[in-house]
Simulated assay, not measured.
Amino acid sequence: MFPKVIAAIVASDPTKYSEAFLGKPNEDYCAWILDPEKWGGAIELAILADYYGREIAAYDIQTTQCDLCVQDRRYSERVILIYDGLHYDALAMSPFEGAPEEFDQTIFAVQKDRTIGPVEGLTLNLV
């Protein structure tokens, strides 16, 4: 689903998503992102953050750096991704050990100080 969303948004605005921005012609990029073997990075995360109206924090386990997508939009929710150098995985927090997966929390409220409280420290410890 994500690649279809990204391709549709990119195709709908070839001026914004130009060859200079994407590194390849708009039409070629759309075909590329729809290939199930391909995945992007910052451009795609920013598109998804705006599409879902949530910040996306991507933590790199190799550097412990956190890149926060579209923080200037001041969205009220954030999702966290863990990046291992090849793949992104969503962070899910369980309310208790052995809890069913449907109880996992993957969306976190952004507080007035623009943090998500203790979840940030827990995430950094994990990373």
Score class of each variant (00 low, 15 high):
1 M>T: 09
2 F>S: 12
2 F>T: 07
2 F>M: 09
3 P>W: 03
6 I>S: 04
6 I>D: 00
8 A>K: 13
8 A>N: 13
9 I>H: 05
10 V>I: 11
11 A>F: 00
11 A>E: 04
12 S>T: 00
12 S>P: 00
13 D>V: 00
13 D>E: 13
14 P>W: 00
14 P>N: 03
16 K>D: 01
18 S>E: 11
19 E>P: 02
19 E>V: 02
20 A>F: 07
21 F>H: 14
23 G>Q: 10
24 K>I: 06
26 N>D: 01
28 D>E: 15
31 A>E: 14
32 W>K: 12
33 I>Q: 05
33 I>N: 05
34 L>A: 02
34 L>E: 11
35 D>T: 08
35 D>I: 02
36 P>K: 14
36 P>S: 15
39 W>R: 11
40 G>H: 01
40 G>F: 00
43 I>T: 10
45 L>E: 08
45 L>P: 00
47 I>H: 01
51 Y>Q: 01
51 Y>P: 00
51 Y>R: 01
52 Y>E: 10
53 G>F: 08
53 G>V: 05
54 R>M: 15
54 R>T: 08
55 E>S: 08
55 E>H: 15
57 A>Q: 04
58 A>C: 14
58 A>H: 06
60 D>A: 04
60 D>Q: 02
62 Q>L: 15
62 Q>Y: 10
64 T>I: 02
66 C>I: 06
66 C>W: 00
66 C>T: 02
67 D>M: 07
73 R>Q: 15
73 R>V: 09
73 R>W: 10
74 R>S: 09
74 R>D: 11
74 R>K: 15
75 Y>I: 04
76 S>Y: 03
76 S>P: 01
79 V>L: 13
80 I>S: 07
80 I>H: 11
81 L>H: 03
81 L>A: 01
84 D>E: 04
85 G>V: 05
85 G>R: 07
87 H>A: 07
87 H>G: 03
88 Y>L: 12
89 D>S: 12
89 D>K: 09
90 A>Y: 08
90 A>W: 08
91 L>W: 03
91 L>N: 00
94 S>I: 01
94 S>L: 12
94 S>T: 13
95 P>E: 06
95 P>N: 07
97 E>L: 13
97 E>N: 10
98 G>E: 05
99 A>C: 11
100 P>F: 04
101 E>T: 10
102 E>C: 01
102 E>Y: 04
102 E>N: 06
102 E>H: 07
103 F>Y: 09
104 D>Q: 05
105 Q>G: 04
106 T>H: 04
107 I>D: 04
112 K>F: 02
112 K>H: 11
113 D>G: 06
114 R>K: 15
115 T>Y: 09
115 T>C: 11
116 I>V: 15
117 G>A: 14
117 G>R: 14
118 P>M: 12
119 V>F: 14
121 G>L: 11
121 G>M: 10
123 T>R: 04
123 T>Q: 02
124 L>Y: 07
125 N>F: 11
127 V>F: 02
